[in-house]
Computed example of a mutant assay.
Amino acid sequence: MKAARLVSEIVILGARSRQITASDLARRLEVTERTIYGDLGELSRMGVPVIAEAGPGGGISLLGDWVSPVAVLTRDELDSLLIGSPAAADLGFAYALATARAKVLTESSSAFSQLILVDGPDWFMAKENPEQLDTIVTALRTQRGLQVAYRGRNGLRSRTLLPLGLVVKAGRWYLAAQPPGGRPRTYRVSRIGSAELRFLRCTPPPNFDLTAYWTGAQAEFDASIRRTRVRLRLPVAQIDDLLRTIPGRLTEAAVNAGRMDRDTIEIDLPMEPDEEAVSQLVTVPGVEVLSPKQLRRDLHVRARAATELNE
């Protein structure tokens, strides 16, 4: 798991008197060099003074005489540090995170990390306070099952779940879990009305990786709601506006595959149904809908109404 790997990297770097190459570190931990470089960024954000020098004779080391405080961290402090803020606070580790950071900073000659604040939720999104988060955390840490009442499209229903991991995105918590005999699914934690621990111990599916699962789940969800194929032409200068208005891998892929000339680009973009598509496209300067014709007419009507209202 990633948390265990980060701890291993701290221990390996702290125990060495000289640099180690990314390839050597990757080989020892049985991961790719790309994973190692991603981990170095995580360690830096945690306050660990990692130095990476490129070129012949270069490598990875810790700054100066910094000594790893991992050995004196409690389990909660270590977990909170690896989870990070603001997720750790939601999980009840705010105090543990504060004390862990203090221990790390006492061993670091740099206070740069104190000048950085990570604020998870979006500007206009209300922060959720899911009631069952504590029970879910207990289930994950003790490898227990859960009996939950989940509010879905068909109302509140009882479900038995094997929890596999938690994801927080823009202040909203999601539970990756597997129903008996089923495949892993994603559940919005705020929609869990009640949760009780079940079973003495559960074994997760072999080789389950939370990051890989979440990446795939996002792609599947994006594809499930964006079923309308829209052909657009817009100024190249407005590509960033399109990406901000309709974010996601599908939009990025459409832009990368688009036909571009000097000033404009034509793309085939999967979008949500008509009304939502109109609401999104009307905010993109210079966009032109080439097809379908109904969406083009609806966008014209919306834009004209707005123009007449503000004349």
Results as ranks from 00 to 15, higher is better:
A3T: 09
R5W: 01
L6P: 08
L6C: 07
L6R: 11
R16M: 12
S17C: 07
Q19H: 10
S23Q: 14
R28E: 10
E30F: 09
I36F: 00
D39R: 03
D39N: 11
G41T: 05
S44P: 07
R45N: 14
M46W: 09
V48W: 13
I51C: 02
G58L: 14
G59L: 09
G64P: 07
D65S: 12
S68F: 00
V70L: 12
A71F: 08
A71E: 13
V72M: 14
T74P: 14
T74I: 11
D76W: 04
E77Q: 15
E77A: 12
L78E: 15
D79I: 13
D79R: 15
S80T: 07
L82G: 02
S85R: 00
A89I: 02
A96P: 15
A98Q: 14
A100Y: 06
K103G: 06
E107S: 10
S108E: 08
S108T: 11
S108V: 06
S108H: 13
S110E: 06
S113F: 03
I116F: 03
V118G: 00
G120R: 02
P121S: 00
F124H: 15
E128N: 00
V137K: 14
T138M: 12
T138P: 04
A139I: 02
A139K: 01
T142Y: 10
Q143A: 04
G145Y: 07
L146R: 14
Y150V: 08
R151F: 10
R151S: 11
R153C: 08
G155H: 07
S158R: 15
T160Y: 09
T160K: 11
L164P: 10
L164R: 09
L166G: 11
K169Q: 07
A170F: 06
W173P: 05
L175H: 11
P179D: 03
G181I: 01
G182H: 14
Y187V: 11
Y187F: 15
I192N: 03
I192S: 04
G193I: 12
A195C: 08
A195E: 10
E196H: 12
R198Q: 02
R201L: 03
R201I: 01
C202S: 12
C202N: 15
T203A: 08
P206Y: 13
N207S: 15
D209W: 06
D209P: 10
L210Q: 10
Y213F: 09
Y213T: 05
W214I: 01
A217V: 02
F221H: 07
D222A: 08
S224K: 09
R227Y: 04
T228Q: 14
R229T: 12
R233D: 07
L234A: 05
L234E: 03
V236L: 00
A237K: 01
A237N: 01
D240L: 09
L242I: 04
P247T: 10
P247I: 04
G248R: 07
L250T: 03
A257I: 09
M260H: 12
D261C: 08
D261T: 06
I265R: 06
I267G: 07
I267C: 06
P270M: 04
M271N: 03
Q280N: 13
Q280P: 03
T283W: 04
G286F: 00
S291F: 05
R296H: 05
D298P: 04
A303F: 05
A306I: 09
